[in-house]
């Protein structure tokens, strides 16, 4: 019996090696991870502070849930209303602005629903809905999904029907589906630029104030979860809002175009 116990213990050690380094668990959105920004942002931080950042890339809704449950130490998300609620409800502390970009409406290059002539975002969605042209929605309660729902609401439309496809997947997968089906979709500019060469869709609408997309970073409240890595979370927040961290965000480019505009250091 002792032998078996020893073997099980040995297995645990092999599988879960105890690192000397501190681990910070970050829940973030698929849009930041799929764009490749985090791989540029964190290595220098990990080296400098001898920590390891475990990135769990999910939708903003799920990321906030992970924070509420205390399953992660810090979240980096983009849904301002939900973020404020997260802090107001006592789950998060020390919210900081990190960066922003904007959302764009993508569609087939020949733009069959004539979205390009729209006056604003709500008008653009109205055109898609009235022509019943295929629209691919994230449908996963992510930041992009929340934004899309808000825009539909502003357009006064409850989207439903065969043309409206809620796929329940990350930003990248949703772009792939929109591309294969040659439909319209709402995407953050960062992910769109990262996928520019892989998809056959064009920006058909952009520039509306309503499509502004700010990202915030929030530490999970240590008063609620004393065993969370609060110090690590604050180190990470410090890094992404520091001058070198913000510079990495500013310099991060894909296909020769910047993806995010830093907003913590003016």
């Amino acid at each position: 019996m002792k032998k078996v116990f020893f073997l099980v213990l040995l297995c645990c050690l092999i599988v879960n090696p105890v690192f000397g380094t501190d681990v910070i668990k970050l829940a973030t959105t698929t849009s930041t991870d799929n764009s490749g920004l985090l791989k540029a942002l964190f290595p220098a931080f990990e080296k400098k502070y001898d920590v390891r950042v475990d990135v769990i890339a999910v939708g903003t809704g799920k990321a906030i849930k992970l924070g509420e449950n205390g399953d992660v130490d810090v979240i980096l998300v983009h849904a301002r209303d939900a973020e404020d609620k997260f802090v107001a409800d006592g789950f998060g502390v020390n919210r900081r602005d990190v960066m922003f970009n904007d959302f764009v409406i993508l569609g087939p290059k020949n733009d069959p629903a004539k979205v390009k002539s729209a006056k604003n975002a709500a008008d653009a969605l109205k055109k898609i809905a009235s022509s019943q042209f295929t629209f691919i929605s994230r449908g996963d309660d992510s930041g992009t999904d929340k934004k899309e729902k808000a825009l539909w609401k502003a357009a006064g439309i409850a989207p439903a029907g065969k043309w409206y496809n809620a796929v329940g997947q990350g930003m990248g997968a949703t772009l792939q589906i929109a591309n294969e089906k040659q439909g319209y979709t709402l995407a953050d500019r960062g992910t769109y630029l990262a996928y520019l060469n892989k998809i056959d869709l064009a920006v058909v609408f952009e520039g509306d104030q309503a499509m502004f997309n700010p990202y915030g970073v929030i530490a999970v409240n240590p008063a609620l979860y004393p065993d969370s890595n609060y110090l690590g979370a604050m180190q990470l927040i410090g890094w992404v809002t520091s001058v070198p961290g913000q510079k990495i965000i500013k310099d991060f480019q894909i296909n020769g175009k910047p993806l995010f505009i830093p907003s913590a250091v003016k």
Binding site: D54, V55, A57, Q169, G170, G172, A173, Q176, Y195
Partner: peptide, 22 residues
Amino acid sequence: GGNIYRYTRTMTTAIALETSKG
């Protein structure tokens, strides 16, 4: 596992991720 890079990313979760990334 959460598909964490260099920690819990396995062959199958990596395949799912890479496919979603194109």
